[in-house]
Structure formats: C-alpha cells, structure tokens
Amino acid sequence: MRTEYEGLSPEEEDKLRDSHWFWTYERYWVKLHHDQGDTIKELDEEGRVLLQEGIIAKDNTPLSLKAMLFNRYVHSGGSHEEFKSFYARY
C-alpha cells in the first residue's frame, strides 16, 4: 500500500480494501444508470426479488445498486449471510 497508509493496523487496511471494493462497483453502477439501458432495469427487478425474499433489507441504497453488490459478492464466493454482515459494516 502507499506510504500514507503506513502504520495502519491490519484491520484498518482490510477496511480500506473492502471500502474500495464497494467504490469499484458503485462507479460501474453510476455508468449503467446514466446509460439507461436494460441492465439497470434488470438489476432493479433483481433487487425487488431479493427484497421480497428477505435476502436484502430496505435502506437508502437503490435496489439496483444493492442487487449489483450482492450479485458480485456472492459471485466472488461469499454467502447470503456473509453479504449481510459485510454490507452492514460499510
């Protein structure tokens, strides 16, 4: 990591890395939202289904963004329950 992060505990470094994970997908979501294509509509629908099934909770995050984050987290090997705690931390 860069020198401005020297002296951070391993937990603080992990939190920075995890926060960056969110930023990467949020940036892509903004692009999809701006393009107004079918993908953002599909993510909205996926978010509604995940909400109805109780997999994600309703908060101030747009369902399409939350669905994308959930999809990528599970695709990377995480479970539904792990996503809930991971999301709650950030």
Score class of each variant (00 low, 15 high):
13 E>P: 11
14 D>S: 15
15 K>P: 00
15 K>D: 14
15 K>L: 13
17 R>D: 11
17 R>V: 09
17 R>A: 10
19 S>I: 12
20 H>T: 05
21 W>N: 01
21 W>I: 04
21 W>H: 09
22 F>G: 11
24 T>W: 13
25 Y>N: 06
26 E>K: 04
27 R>F: 10
28 Y>E: 15
28 Y>Q: 10
29 W>I: 11
31 K>A: 04
32 L>M: 03
33 H>T: 12
34 H>G: 13
34 H>P: 12
35 D>V: 01
37 G>C: 14
39 T>G: 08
40 I>G: 07
40 I>M: 15
42 E>G: 13
43 L>G: 02
43 L>S: 03
45 E>T: 01
45 E>P: 00
46 E>R: 10
47 G>S: 01
49 V>D: 11
49 V>S: 10
50 L>Q: 04
51 L>M: 05
52 Q>M: 11
53 E>Y: 09
54 G>C: 08
54 G>L: 08
54 G>R: 15
56 I>V: 14
56 I>M: 06
57 A>H: 14
57 A>V: 06
59 D>S: 01
60 N>I: 04
61 T>E: 09
61 T>I: 14
62 P>L: 08
62 P>K: 00
62 P>R: 01
62 P>G: 01
62 P>T: 02
64 S>F: 04
64 S>N: 08
65 L>C: 07
66 K>H: 14
66 K>E: 10
67 A>R: 08
67 A>D: 05
68 M>P: 00
69 L>C: 03
70 F>G: 03
70 F>L: 10
73 Y>P: 01
74 V>H: 01
75 H>S: 08
77 G>C: 08
81 E>P: 06
83 F>K: 08
85 S>G: 03
86 F>T: 03
